[in-house]
Each structure stands twice: as C-alpha cells, then as structure tokens.
Design a protein around this nucleic acid. Structure first.
Lengths: 129, 129
DNA sequence: CATATCAGTATCCTTTTTGATACTATATGA
DNA sequence: TCATATAGTATCAAAAAGGATACTGATATG
C-alpha cells in the first residue's frame, strides 16, 4: 500500500475496510499474524515460517505491528537474547479476517498462485466489444 | 505489497492467507470491491466513492483486478463511452473477507485512524526491560 | 460557441517498500 | 579454538507503488 497508513476517513463507508486492511498489508504481516494465532513465537521461529523474509524486513514488520497494537513484544534479559512475540487482545480480534483470508485462499488458489477459474478474456474474447 | 504478486507457495500453511490478501492490497482495491458488492458501477461512480484516487490509479487497480478475475469490465459502444464494472463470481466469493474487514474496522478504528485501545508502550513503559 | 461528461492515457516525478549483504555481542557446545 | 545461535542493525541499492498534471474525441447541454 502506500505512504499514509490509515489516515483520514472522510470516504465512508468503505474506509473501515481500508483501515483494517492497511494494518495487515505488509508483505509478511498477514503470515506473521496467522502463525501467531497458534501461539507465541520467537524472532527466528517466525523467520522459519516466512522463509526468504530477511531479518531486516521481519524486524520492520514486527515493529509496525507492535506500534499498531496488534502484537506484543516481550524481551527477556538473557544471553543469548530471547524475544517472544504474541498477539495482543486487539490482534486476536483479527482472527475472523485471517480465517476468512485463509479459507478463501485454500478454496481458490491453485498451486499456480493464480486464482482458480478461467480468465474471462480467454473464455469470451467478444466480451470487450 | 511487492514485486511478485502471489508467486509460489512453498511456505504453507500461511501462504493461502498471503495469496488472498495479495489480491486486494492495492490502495483502492478493497474499497472498490466493497462498493461493487452493492452492484454495478461505472468508472466515475467508483471514482466518486474513492475521492482523491486519480483516474490513473483507479484504472490500474481495475485492470489488475480484472486480470485476477475478480471483476468484470463491460464496455458499451456508446458515445460518450460507458463502461460498467461488476464483481465476477470469483469476486463475490470474497464477500466474507470484505465483510470481516469492514466489521473489524467499524469496531476498532476510531476517527483518528488509529486502532482503538492503548499503545502498550504508553501504558507500560517497563515492558521493554 | 463554450463547456462539461465520459473513460480513460501519457508523461514525469516522488515516496515507499523491499532486497542483499555484512556486521554486532555473548555464550554454549564440539 | 572455532563455529553456532540469538535478535537484530547498518548501509546501499533497486524496484514498485503511488501522485500530479495535462490531454484525448465526440457528443450533449447551456
């Protein structure tokens, strides 16, 4: 998405939709949230779930989600360091969204990564008359 | 989001989540979908719903959604031109997602544009020991 | 005749996001 | 002793997304 994260909402009623999605649109956020639904995870545990997410990216996304109050970051004063991430109460309220996304994806995304079902252009070349 | 739109899914099981959100993460897509739930709309009608979306951006997002099979674009050979956008069957299957987003937003976003509920850092400055 | 409407495009530019790579300090285990 | 694990950060570069503005061509309206 862009620049201004969930800014002003003078465009009701679609805006609450935009606001909600604005919180989870980072490239890894929805995945992170999804896995945190199952319980607390440490930094590198999350990283393993989101392979090919660089530590830099993961850190950024986690910080943003923390700022948005979606997750909780708990630092233990140990060596080597231990940091645990978990969903906040607010974050947990997003479960219906995450589940809806998951259900839709499971039902509609083939292994191709493209939605199932034909592209209308291929099926009906006259559509565009 | 980024570069590769719903690419490969070697990271199950979070990937269907990512795939689903990848289809609606454009700055205006979820809003467009939301309004199309109520019925067919013309280009400039959508534009009015998404004030301060430039025609360039609106056109781009609509094209992408069309390519993804979420919406249908119907062109009438009239002058001045008339083009109608509507949800495809596939697009309509996203209603649960959109509704979940809307419900969450209505329940949790104040007029500030920030999620309701306190930032943990303000409430508990010792959290980060 | 001048203007507005329609559905966009074209061009240029800025901002935001993401990626690659290397690096930190300390402790444990081989 | 050397590597490994931890949770990141620093720096640089690339790419993607978004924005501003101006323009189209024919027709209807004032």
């Amino acid at each position: 998405m862009a620049k201004v994260r969930h800014s002003r909402f003078d465009c009701a009623p679609g805006c609450s939709v935009e606001a909600a999605i604005g919180l989870i649109d980072g490239k890894w956020k929805s995945i992170i949230m999804w896995h945190l639904l199952s319980g607390t995870l440490r930094f590198n545990e999350i990283r393993r779930h989101a392979s090919n997410c660089t530590p830099r990216m993961l850190a950024r996304q986690l910080r943003e989600m923390e700022e948005d109050g979606l997750i909780i970051r708990k630092v233990y004063a140990e060596v080597p360091p231990r940091v645990e991430y978990s969903l906040s109460d607010l974050g947990r309220t997003m479960e219906p969204i995450l589940r809806a996304l998951k259900d839709w994806g499971d039902a509609n995304i083939g292994l191709s990564g493209k939605p199932k079902g034909h592209d209308p252009r291929e099926a009906d070349p006259l559509r565009n008359i």
